[in-house]
Design a protein around this nucleic acid. Structure first.
Lengths: 217, 217
DNA sequence: ACATAATGATCCTGATCGGAAAATTGTCAA
DNA sequence: TTGACAATTTTCCGATCAGGATCATTATGT
């Protein structure tokens, strides 16, 4: 069992490997010599910003600084999760009610979300939403109008869907004919990484008063 | 540019999405509430050891804490494709009728497929299907029975869904109560072109007599 | 009224971090 | 061998900050 090697050892090996002096490393990284020296002797550790600075100035992956055995997975997994709205995690925003499905599964490549659309006009909706990744939206009940940054609005009825790049501004609003609409959305989680998708996906930028509540968990 | 979100934002999004309170997160991570609160408000950052602690206690990978989008961040794309069954590509197999949606879009990360399920018994179905990737299946009409390699069969009714690792053997058959069932399936495409995914994904291995015909393309 | 959750305000101990001085190591000439 | 001398590394010190405890406040729901 190799314990986590210290940050000092990692930095020292990195520096030796590249045949740098402390001074050279200091100039490249923008971190003073004295600090680097102390880190290498485990008399000091670094904070978030310094680690980030090291990572991008020296072009190291963050995970290397933590000696993380990177993606070691891709074995035969056999996960299964049933998506029922009663077991979902509900997130309400002014425009949508989200029901996150299958939340018990971590690190999925896709995120299924049942969404009840309340907004009925673009002005009511506010700014277009944009985030990384892609998404497919399928209309389950009612009909919706899809507004987007680079296309004319289009109306989708029950049974129809749309696939879009999510970094294009977009907004789904309920069509005039119906009171509310229910859609199934699937968001690609950006880079096989659950977190980065959770970071960016489906958070209306600047939405102030979100309420988050669990339902039946 | 690299709009590096702050550590605070990242932690906050993480916590919100898992629907944890500060207290809960504190207990799980072993970091006191006051510290977490300050971090989330960007009044504080964390040092190496705390970041490591967060990573392993909460089972997050370090790179996620730094919002490191390892692989190249793509440019701004603005694709859009409407998925109507009339514009789909139809593929018939003994067990299923597939309607591939949004086929005009190449290189998508997900593949939406409307599927009409005809098989009504596992014996009639044949061997379980297995392929790479993950998939989410949502029942639109009727109800289905999901058979899989490592789980008991489960019945899904209209409005319910299931997320599975596709390399686990699986089969969807129409429930006895209904004649046919209609489901919306989304397959994660292992970042390959549409064609190769059409070739590999969702083809019962060894299915001999497939008919492929385009409808309204 | 009560409990829970989030935030803010203090206070404190110990750590980060950077500049500058001191110590170490190596090189070369007399 | 000895004494400059420079390059590299380490130590010292002060200003700032991490990080944890505690209490007060506000909002929300029961």
């Amino acid at each position: 069992m190799s314990d986590h090697p210290t940050l000092g050892r990692i930095l020292k090996e990195l520096r030796n490997h590249r045949c740098w002096t402390l001074k050279e490393m200091s100039e490249r990284s923008g971190i003073p010599i004295s600090t680097l020296s102390k880190v290498e002797h485990d008399r000091l550790t670094l904070t978030y910003d310094k680690l980030l600075q090291l990572s991008q100035k020296l072009r190291i992956r963050i995970s290397d600084l933590f000696a993380e055995s990177d993606s070691a997975e891709e074995g035969v997994t056999a996960r299964r999760s049933i998506g029922r709205i009663d077991d979902s995690v509900r997130v309400t925003t002014p425009n949508y009610d989200y029901y996150y499905l299958c939340t018990e599964l971590r690190r999925k490549r896709m995120i299924p979300i049942l969404t009840r659309i309340r907004a009925k006009s673009l002005s009511e909706f506010g700014d277009l939403v944009r985030h990384s990744g892609e998404e497919y939206i399928h209309v389950l009940e009612g009909s919706i109008v899809v507004h987007s940054e680079f296309y004319d609005p289009v109306t989708l009825h029950t049974g129809e869907g749309i696939y879009i790049d999510s970094n294009m501004g977009h907004a789904y609003i309920a069509d005039e004919g119906c009171d509310e609409a229910l859609v199934l959305g699937i968001c690609s989680s950006a880079d096989e990484s659950l977190m980065s998708s959770l970071m960016n996906i489906h958070e209306p930028v600047g939405a102030a008063n979100q309420t988050v509540e669990e339902v039946d968990v």
